[in-house]
Design a protein around this nucleic acid. Structure first.
Lengths: 199, 199
DNA sequence: TTGCGACCTAGCCAAATGACTAGTTGCTTG
DNA sequence: CAAGCAACTAGTCATTTGGCTAGGTCGCAA
């Protein structure tokens, strides 16, 4: 297996994390043919490597768009990426993995296998969390969320509740904060997943 | 990693397949401490091995019942087992795997990782969706609607689909028109009500 | 009494959204 | 071959949005 070094490419992360990965891999029969914070400049060299190591999932969509089954992909992340690669050698190991785990993963990936940390794999086939809501929405906020989900604009909600549009925006902001999201569409998603919304 | 041999146990399969596995593993630093067509006689020795190799999935339920996180499990199979192990090192490789794949899998498993052949992994997250065909959304539009419902902005959708933000807005407009609504939030409501969206 | 939280109002401002119009390619069907 | 369609790109423009700061009232509890 070690008749020749494994050809690798590092994409994403910071200068620090890439340096860390370099030092980790220095112990093994690995050759890092290229490394960069983003993928654009490396697209031409993808055919020359065995495994691409992504230090974050920013580059994944672009990578999947430009390649189908080669090279293998190792993602260093705490979460399952979306979209998930299909029918190719890919893997996700958590950021706290030991060097041996990284190396064992690379070996398996080169052979065409998929490798996942158990916590990541658990995310695949138990994604729905029937979780309770830790933050409690006030009555007014729940009311606003419901109207939000029905597709009303702030102005329409204001008319419906007979309050000012400014006030609606206040409630929406509180809502976004409590649900820990950045937009009304995300609020709808979270609300729907937690059963806060009646369709 | 090879300061001591990997301790293995073979369960299930036939005399022939177990012999085959023995010969495959003879090339590597592996010690097969026990082997049997069924698991009952081996339960006491489970604490002494690193990885249990299941040549079929007959013994899996019993194995899961008697152990929680140790030892790791390697299943040789064409299909995902049921029930599936959770939060432990386990893996499935297909019966046509090369010896190197078996060995790389065992190494990864010993370190606590999960290893799956791509075809097996694909079985996990490929729920063939009962598409509601009453809608006239194009594939692309349906894709956009899904991402819309997940709370992504036009820009994020553009990055995800590797198209321009302009194009996303075009698709969103087409979507709004076809669903006969005026905003993305309304589109989410209609999409959810018609089961077009997977939460 | 003071403080707190829910609720309400207001203005400013940057970003996101969505309606337009106007073009490209590539594939399929008549 | 022509026509239609899906997918894509590009621009302008008004509206909507959401963050921000800065107030107000009311009821309840320490």
């Amino acid at each position: 297996m070690s008749e020749s070094a494994l050809k690798l490419m590092l994409i994403g992360g910071t200068t620090l994390t890439r340096a860390g990965m370099r030092s980790v891999l220095a112990e093994y029969e690995a050759e890092i043919v290229a490394a960069a914070p983003n993928i654009e400049s490396l697209l031409d060299h993808l055919g020359n490597v065995d495994v691409v190591i992504l230090l974050d999932d920013q580059a994944l969509p672009l990578l999947l768009h430009h390649t189908t089954d080669q090279p293998a992909i190792l993602l260093i992340s705490q979460e399952l990426p979306r979209p998930t690669p299909q029918q190719r050698a890919w893997g996700v190991v958590t950021t706290d993995a030991y060097p041996q785990e990284i190396w064992a993963s690379l070996q398996a990936l080169q052979l065409g296998l998929c490798v996942l940390s158990p916590t990541i794999l658990a995310q695949i086939h138990s994604p729905p969390q029937p979780e309770p809501l830790d933050t409690v929405l006030s009555e007014r906020e729940h009311e606003v969320l419901q109207l939000l989900a029905e597709g009303l604009t702030n102005r329409q909600i204001a008319q419906r509740l007979v309050i000012s549009e400014h006030t609606v925006k206040f409630h929406v902001s509180a809502l976004l904060s409590k649900l820990d999201v950045a937009s009304r569409t995300e609020a709808i998603r979270v609300g729907a997943q937690r059963g806060l919304i009646i369709w």
